[in-house]
Design a protein around this nucleic acid. Sequence first.
DNA 1: TCTGGGGTCCTAGGACCC
DNA 2: TCTGGGGTCCTAGGACCC
Length: 420
Amino acid sequence: MFALVDCNNFYPSCERVFNPKLDGKPIIVLSNNDGCAIARSEEAKALGVEMGTPAHMIENLIRENDIQVYSSNYALYGDLSDRVMTILSGFVPDLECYSIDEAFLDTSQLYGQDLRQLGVTIRKTVHQHTGLPVSIGIAPTKTLAKMANRYVKKNRIAGGVHWLSNAEAVQEVLQFTKVGDIWGIGPARSRVCLRHGFKTAYDLSRAPDDWVLKKMSVVGHRLLQELRGIPCIEWELEPPPKKNIGSSRSFGKLMTQKIDIEQAVANYMATCAGKLRKQGSCAGKIHVFIQTNPFRTQDAQYFRSITMSLPVDTSSTPELIRYALKALDIIFKPEFNYLKVGVMVLNLVPEKQTQSGMFDNKDRGKDRQIMKTVDTVNKALGKDLVRFAVQGFENRYKLRAAHISPRYTTRLTDIVKITA
DNA sequence: TCTGGGGTCCTAGGACCC
DNA sequence: TCTGGGGTCCTAGGACCC
């Protein structure tokens, strides 16, 4: 049995933990740059705020209903997430952190126990220790556990836990779930299903295998098995090393100067390189892209990207920056209003497996030592104080975050003060 | 007059997730 | 004025080899 624990409206709930005045009020949390609503409290959903709506399109709705608006505060959400995961790991031998607000718990060793009761205890404990509400779905496969979890939220199941402990319970949830709401069915596959008369997860679970295989490939077929209670999606208890690492951001305002864009590229690449070293990998390729704002129809549009193979696999920040700037130089054209640039490192290999190039006369050992020192110093200071010249210190492209809450749990000066 | 077949590797793009 | 960011997996099709 898999138990899926999912925090309810995670970001808005995090904001509530340290600001109880928000209880019962509609809250939305915005994406980077305060662009779109990416998380909503139940009250905000009830007011009709859809996922991904641009903030500027709902200004009236926000004003008229006194919707509380927050910029994303990932320092806060990430820290609360860690706390929830730590609590959950105390209940079961194994768990898989699936996303910032979800974890699968392995309950297979608890055979014969009342798993619903276990779920109720877990939920109570998480709430007691963090102030965050969670829902729990328990089922024979991950897909069904996801579905059971959603069922809890949609039907406000008492206790916040639903255990699909027998065939009838499974069938009820399958019949309740529309195909488009199945984990793994997006708009494209949903259209295919509906066109052929499969409206619910129950319908799909009875579809012929060869039809599913043909129309929805092996991905769809695995999903079909999962709906039938046969686990096909395995545990991933250790997060596997990343195969690509990317960093991209929209600018706070449109940019035209190459020097500003170079600074952004250098900083994004520094971020990627840091993550790269953290997982002990080197990159064999880099990718750089640049684009204008597609929503500004009055502007000339430009989108270009370039992938560049590196002569030697590397994780050195200055070296990666140098290549990224070379790549940018090839694709950059003046006279456009740029909205966004991004970089990626690809073809990642473990550091120990890297091959040295035939004409490589760089002292790699020394280079690695320097980067190690930079990482150590920056980690100790808690921010990227040691930087390379091209990264600059003042950036003109910085994000808008007009409604950000304090970093209550990760910055000493932001700690909640209580006066008695 | 006639122009193979099978395999591997790589890349771009689609679909999906949170 | 104003529309997010970071990933994974799969497939089709081209290049190349024998």
